[in-house]
């Protein structure tokens, strides 16, 4: 478990994985990918960290409570944003008609609600997949 090569390679490669995952999440409305694929890539970075540095390192970086909070918070964020549409008098998950600014097409901050929804889904999926791995690996 205590392998120097694995640790050094993980230290070099994890920042690239995390930046790519964040890129996929944030550009979900512009390019291929989105909240789900980007969240899985982010979780892959966390799992690699757990494999290289051991479970206690991941537990101090992403405690169980924080992961649970992100999981339920992502769902609540999605539903709450959807309910904004109902509160302003149009449909569930309404975008421009609920008053979200659309921005200029092709820019990063555009698309109104889609950007915010992708952000919530990305965080939720990253927390869920790392919890999945953690629960499976537990009870040795």
């Amino acid at each position: 478990m205590d392998d120097l090569v694995l640790k050094v390679v993980a230290r070099v490669i994890i920042p690239f994985i995390q930046v790519y995952g964040l890129y996929v999440v944030l550009h979900g409305h512009l390019s291929p990918g989105g909240g789900f694929a980007g969240g899985v890539i982010l979780a892959g970075g966390f799992i690699l960290y757990a494999l290289a540095y051991g479970r206690p390192a991941l537990d101090s970086l992403l405690p169980d409570r924080l992961a649970a909070l992100l999981e339920s918070g992502g769902v609540l964020w999605y539903t709450g944003l959807g309910l904004v549409g109902l509160l302003t008098g149009s449909a569930f998950l309404a975008n421009a008609r609920a008053g979200f600014p659309l921005g200029v097409p092709g820019r990063l901050f555009s698309g109104g609600i889609v950007f915010l929804l992708n952000l919530g889904i990305g965080l939720k999926v990253a927390a869920t997949i790392s919890t999945l791995f953690r629960n499976l690996q537990e009870e040795e």
């Binding site: 291929p32 990918g33 789900f36 694929a37 899985v40 892959g44």
Partner: peptide, 14 residues
Amino acid sequence: PDIALAEAAIGAGI
């Protein structure tokens, strides 16, 4: 490409 990205991340990775 959307499905390809998801397949590479989920199928081959996780």
